[in-house]
Computed example of a mutant assay.
Amino acid sequence: MRRVVIVTIVALGCGIAFWSFADPSLITATLDGLSVEIVLALLALLGVNELVKGLRWAWYLRAAQLPIRVVDGLTSYLASQAACSLPGGALLSARLAEEHGGGRIRLRHTTPPLLVQGFGDLFAVSLLALGGIVLTGQASYQLAAPAAGGAIVLLFVTGARSDRFGTALTGLLERSRYTRRLVPAERDARMTLATLCTPRALAPGVLASLVSSLVIAAILVVLAEALTLRGLHLHEAIYVHGMTMLAHFLVPIPNGFGTNELSVIGLLNIVGIGFGRATAIAVTYRAFGLAFRTVIGLAVLLIRYHRILFALRRPMLPQTPPALQLELAAERRE
């Protein structure tokens, strides 16, 4: 059953990834303007970004005191990118990490690191957006966005570490016979969250998110240098990416389809890049990123987790009843 779920998720993810390129002529026209050196630089930066994200996921798994090796955490993240275009596709990394637990790890153990990773990302992009707003001299009202992101993270960490909140949640679940069976899983998840929501566990993860965001800002700089005459400064790219990701987190659109592109286009226009060129940058970045992650994810999934996808269970042979076995043995002796 689990194998069927994973295959379905991967198939849907690939389908959405290909469907998202509904206007290939725009992408082809944009790619024609990129030199081989620029394409190689983009691929290298995308590879570094995925490596940093994979190591960040491996760190959160280790910080949760789960017996999963760093290399296994890295491959579970990379393989999950096969479903990166699917809403909720990130859960595949938690499901694949479960494979490395030797039967001792369940989703209730691997899902809390995924949740904390998301809030760590939100805190990192809030810091980036704050720095970008200050460095680019934007209007002060824009500070409300990173302030909201920081406040949400603070509330989450406070709630995760609060014994009072945990006791209240457990009592609420125990009231109904339909939710009472969730109490053990809720306790395990709450203990893992409390372990992860400490400075020692959060700081390396947030640092990795900052590095990843700076790599993406560098990608925007490379694309702007290749597709515009004006170019883009690093602090402007930090502002664009930070505010775009804040919009992604704060606006509940699955996978940010549409909102991410519109945010990038609008913010690039604010810093001085025309609408047409801004659209080309946003579309190229989305196309490159989605295609790269999907291909890498499929490759790692097929190489590292092929048994989950293609292993066939051998049919059970009919067992001969013990009494009949004794009769057959007696006949052979006679």
Results as ranks from 00 to 15, higher is better:
residue 331 E to G: 00
residue 273 I to D: 00
residue 278 A to H: 02
residue 4 V to A: 14
residue 294 T to I: 10
residue 107 L to I: 08
residue 148 A to D: 00
residue 210 L to S: 04
residue 187 R to N: 06
residue 192 T to C: 13
residue 132 G to F: 06
residue 8 T to D: 04
residue 217 A to W: 04
residue 147 A to M: 13
residue 236 E to G: 07
residue 133 I to E: 02
residue 7 V to N: 12
residue 326 L to M: 06
residue 323 A to M: 09
residue 59 W to R: 04
residue 17 A to F: 05
residue 329 A to N: 09
residue 209 S to T: 07
residue 319 Q to H: 10
residue 180 R to E: 14
residue 141 Y to R: 11
residue 57 W to A: 07
residue 149 G to R: 02
residue 125 V to Y: 10
residue 47 G to W: 07
residue 184 P to F: 04
residue 312 L to E: 14
residue 287 A to E: 00
residue 28 T to K: 09
residue 106 R to E: 12
residue 141 Y to K: 03
residue 327 E to K: 11
residue 132 G to M: 09
residue 246 L to K: 04
residue 85 S to H: 03
residue 261 E to A: 04
residue 286 R to S: 07
residue 135 L to H: 02
residue 318 P to W: 11
residue 279 T to F: 03
residue 94 A to I: 08
residue 235 H to L: 10
residue 177 R to T: 15
residue 59 W to Q: 07
residue 2 R to C: 00
residue 212 S to G: 15
residue 15 G to H: 11
residue 273 I to L: 15
residue 239 Y to L: 14
residue 299 A to H: 06
residue 301 L to N: 10
residue 176 S to P: 02
residue 296 I to H: 00
residue 23 D to F: 03
residue 73 G to A: 12
residue 141 Y to N: 06
residue 231 G to T: 03
residue 102 G to W: 05
residue 234 L to G: 02
residue 330 A to I: 04
residue 190 R to F: 08
residue 43 L to D: 02
residue 322 P to E: 11
residue 181 R to G: 06
residue 68 I to K: 05
residue 235 H to I: 05
residue 208 A to E: 06
residue 214 L to P: 02
residue 281 I to R: 00
residue 167 T to M: 04
residue 161 R to C: 09
residue 114 L to K: 10
residue 95 R to S: 14
residue 146 P to F: 06
residue 158 T to G: 10
residue 27 I to N: 00
residue 2 R to Q: 12
residue 107 L to A: 03
residue 11 A to H: 02
residue 82 A to V: 15
residue 197 C to Y: 09
residue 64 A to N: 09
residue 66 L to K: 07
residue 107 L to N: 03
residue 206 V to P: 02
residue 191 M to S: 13
residue 300 V to M: 10
residue 306 H to T: 07
residue 323 A to V: 14
residue 243 M to L: 15
residue 120 G to H: 04
residue 40 L to Q: 03
residue 76 S to F: 02
residue 187 R to T: 12
residue 126 S to D: 09
residue 55 L to K: 04
residue 155 L to H: 03
residue 294 T to Y: 11
residue 169 L to Y: 11
residue 64 A to F: 04
residue 195 T to R: 15
residue 306 H to A: 13
residue 216 I to A: 00
residue 97 A to G: 11
residue 54 G to A: 15
residue 125 V to F: 13
residue 307 R to S: 15
residue 131 G to A: 15
